[in-house]
Design a protein around this nucleic acid. Structure first.
Lengths: 143, 143
DNA sequence: GTAGGATTGATAATCGTTATCAATCCGAGC
DNA sequence: GCTCGGATTGATAACGATTATCAATCCTAC
């Protein structure tokens, strides 16, 4: 049962990618990760970063977020359970602590029963406008 | 304040797309919508379907779902508030009725306070394995 | 030290989606 | 009914993100 982790060899490139994810509190896209990794590791190829991100996600050391902007995936080095608020306008995501889960886990049991799914978790994504975009939006609306 | 709806002209093509969405309970990708629309409307161009989907979403007559598979967007003609269970393996999504929202809306207020976001809503996405993939998975695991 | 598999980086290929553009449609006004 | 003008269509090209390919290089085990 090799589900736990296929013994990921931590090469310098992979370590660099992991350190970028660990060392930031925002949720960079793959392109942003590539930029940042190249500060420490100039020659690294884009394919290597994509591969490393995939491996880190697969081995549970990072999360891949699909934040609903139709655009690119974002990555999160914070693997503790938490949710996000996402800005509808600029796509910025901020971590929020996970709810006291009881009402949702209760719902999950009901859903499992109704749908036949083996429900293993959930993602809760709040959305709205971040403080910056509220300001910009207000300015635009006045024009 | 034209937020409500920019008076969408309901051309035959757009009507056909809308009818496909209304007439199915799954959550087709754009490619699947194109296939289905062509049954009723053989000559329709892919660009037109993409445009129509965008307009329907914009005018509130359909929802665009980002279901976390890194892949393509899915569309939902059911615009009443509801959430989804998504299969981690095959990407299939099933509607689930919206939770009695109180604990979550309470959380939303706290989040708004903490992050400065104007929180306008949330998406709750359960995930796990659908009944079919549980079967397949069991079979594979035995091999 | 060597063989062999894993990893890398460059590049091409793929996929979903959006932009472009000429042709056509449709409604308002005559 | 006819004409004008903007909206819409469909084909195609363009685009951005991601993945596949492949030769060169690196480690590890022997």
């Amino acid at each position: 049962m090799p589900t736990t982790g296929p013994e990921l060899r931590l090469t310098p490139q992979r370590r660099a990618v992991l350190e970028v994810l660990r060392g930031c509190t925002d949720h960079p896209t793959a392109a942003e990760v590539i930029d940042r990794v190249r500060h420490q590791h100039p020659g690294i190829g884009a394919a290597t970063v994509y591969r490393s991100l995939g491996l880190l996600v697969e081995s549970g050391q990072a999360l891949e977020l699909s934040l609903g902007d139709g655009a690119s995936a974002r990555y999160d080095g914070n693997t503790t359970h938490h949710d996000h608020v996402v800005c509808d306008t600029c796509g910025r995501a901020v971590d929020v602590p996970r709810l006291t889960a009881s009402p949702i886990t209760t719902a999950a049991r009901g859903i499992a029963h109704d749908t036949g799914f083996d429900v293993t978790g959930y993602d809760l994504r709040f959305h709205g406008l971040c403080a910056d975009c509220q300001r910009l939006n207000g300015a635009t609306a006045e024009a």
